[in-house]
Computed example of a mutant assay.
Amino acid sequence: MTPQEEIEELLARIAMGDRKAFSALYDRTSAKLYGICLRVLGDRAEAEEALQEAFIRVWNRADLYRVNGFSPMTWLITLTRNIAIDRRRRSRAAKPAEALDVADTMPDTAPGPEAQAALASETERLHGCMRELPPDRAEMVRRAYLEGHTYAELSEATGVKLNTVRTWLRRALIQLRDCLAR
């Protein structure tokens, strides 16, 4: 059973009031969800309270999760992140305007932990798909799409006709697309 299937099963059992499933879900996901709360709120005590609120909501609303092919972690992360953001907004509204620091008003453009994890996963999948290509085609894809070489430059460097280079690259991209869709 995959981790995704395990979490889906735990959520289904929680929806039926299974406390052991709730405890198991907490053990498997709380560290990651706490990290999200901490990143949004920047305060350990606030993050702990937000995490507690998130798990109360999971207990009360586990029946709202629907198995639809999307990751149950995405559902949990979204729920937790929204709670943390709401808490942050409430605390900001309580602060007087002059107490706001410039850092409080600047948006954080860095990817969050969930985005970093998703990017790492996608990168690994892409590397796996690139390994499925013949080595010469994989090298051509790297040179064309990562290093910016033109088709003509690739043709000259490899001694392969220009139209053949175009065809190989198009087929390689189709193969990569199909591999990533699996």
Score class of each variant (00 low, 15 high):
W168Y: 14
D86K: 06
L76H: 08
L154E: 05
R39A: 12
L76G: 01
R131I: 02
E114L: 06
Y34N: 07
D18V: 04
R166I: 06
M130C: 06
R89H: 12
L133S: 05
L173A: 11
A99H: 06
R66W: 01
A118Y: 11
L76K: 10
T158K: 01
R170N: 11
L176A: 06
A31I: 13
Y34V: 03
K20F: 02
E53F: 00
A117Y: 01
A94F: 03
A152M: 13
R137F: 14
E139G: 09
R81C: 04
R177T: 11
D101I: 14
E132M: 10
R61L: 05
E49T: 02
Y145V: 00
G42D: 03
G128E: 09
M1C: 07
L79Q: 03
Y26W: 15
D86L: 06
C179D: 08
P134F: 06
L173F: 08
K20H: 04
R131W: 03
F70M: 10
A144F: 14
D101A: 15
A157I: 06
T123Y: 08
E139S: 14
L79Y: 10
W59K: 01
L173M: 14
A97N: 02
I174G: 09
V160L: 01
R137T: 15
S121D: 15
A62T: 07
E5Q: 15
G35T: 04
R182P: 01
R90Y: 03
P111A: 04
D18A: 00
R125S: 05
E139D: 15
E132P: 00
S23W: 02
P107D: 13
G128D: 07
Y145H: 13
Q4R: 14
L133A: 07
L133W: 10
R90G: 03
V160Q: 02
A115Q: 15
G148Q: 03
P96W: 12
F55D: 01
V102C: 02
M140N: 09
W75G: 00
L38T: 01
I14C: 14
M140A: 14
E49S: 08
I7H: 12
A94M: 05
N68V: 02
I83E: 02
A45S: 12
L169T: 04
L169H: 09
L38R: 13
Y26Q: 08
P107I: 13
V67L: 04
D63M: 07
W59I: 04
E132A: 11
H127C: 02
A118L: 15
E122Y: 12
L10N: 07
A138C: 05
R92S: 10
P3M: 11
A144V: 03
L162Y: 15
A21S: 15
A94L: 09
L154Y: 13
R39D: 05
R57E: 08
H127G: 00
R81N: 09
P111Q: 08
T150F: 13
